[in-house]
């Protein structure tokens, strides 16, 4: 084995892959490649013959890497998920940050730690962004459905926008539900009634 560790990053999103590769480069002198293709993943990886594979925990294709852990797998040499061997706390941090690492058996923990530290920091950021994006998306969708419900009420009862919203809010409070839930029920029902 050459002294330079080779790392494969499995990531379909190009921008995210770049960010991960950049932060790993900043962490040390590594030979890094990124794979975006999901089909035939194990074959692609075995072609690179890496020391370390990093993959997002939310990626369903992660199971394809599990067969690398079998000695008879495509790498033809034992690969262990990092979980197996080294520092339990570091691995736990990785799992919680949403990154999993597959490491060729026998690599010492101190050689892996800077790689995993860099990946963990990056994935923490991704996770925050993911949560923020979802929250924003949901808020937007809720606002859209509330607007439609207000429209339904304004038309059906001949009231203005503020009165329509007040009506929705009161109904939500009376029923102990969210305004957006009441709005959605109203939009669905009015759709059915035509």
């Amino acid at each position: 084995m050459s002294n330079r560790l080779s790392i494969v990053v499995v990531e379909a999103d190009r921008e995210r892959a770049h960010l991960i590769v950049d932060s790993l480069r900043a962490a040390g002198d590594y030979d890094i490649s990124a794979i975006a293709e999901v089909t035939g993943l194990a074959r692609h990886i075995s072609r690179h013959d890496p020391d370390v594979v990093l993959v997002d925990i939310a990626n369903p294709s992660r199971d394809m890497l599990e067969e690398l852990a079998l000695a008879s797998g495509p790498l033809e040499r034992p690969v262990a998920m990092f979980v197996d061997r080294s520092d339990g706390g570091l691995t736990k941090a990785a799992v919680e940050a949403g990154v999993s690492a597959y490491v060729v058996d026998g690599l010492r923990a101190e050689r892996i730690k800077p790689i995993l530290d860099a990946a963990i920091a990056r994935f923490h950021m991704f996770q925050r962004m993911r949560v923020e994006l979802e929250t924003t998306k949901r808020a937007l969708e809720e606002r859209k459905v509330i607007d439609r419900a207000k429209g339904v009420l304004m038309k059906a009862r001949g009231i203005d926008e503020d009165a329509a919203y007040a009506l929705l809010r009161r109904a939500a409070m009376d029923q102990g539900r969210k305004v957006s839930d009441v709005a959605e029920a109203l939009v669905t029902a009015s759709g059915l009634l035509g």
Binding site: I57, A58, N59, P60, S61, R62, D63, L65, E66, M81, V83, T91, K92, V95, E96, S100
Partner: peptide
């Protein structure tokens, strides 16, 4: 869970 390996890890690490 998105995959069996992740489900296994969630269980092992107490999530």
């Amino acid at each position: 869970a998105p995959s069996w390996s992740t489900l296994r890890d969630m269980l092992v690490f107490g999530q």
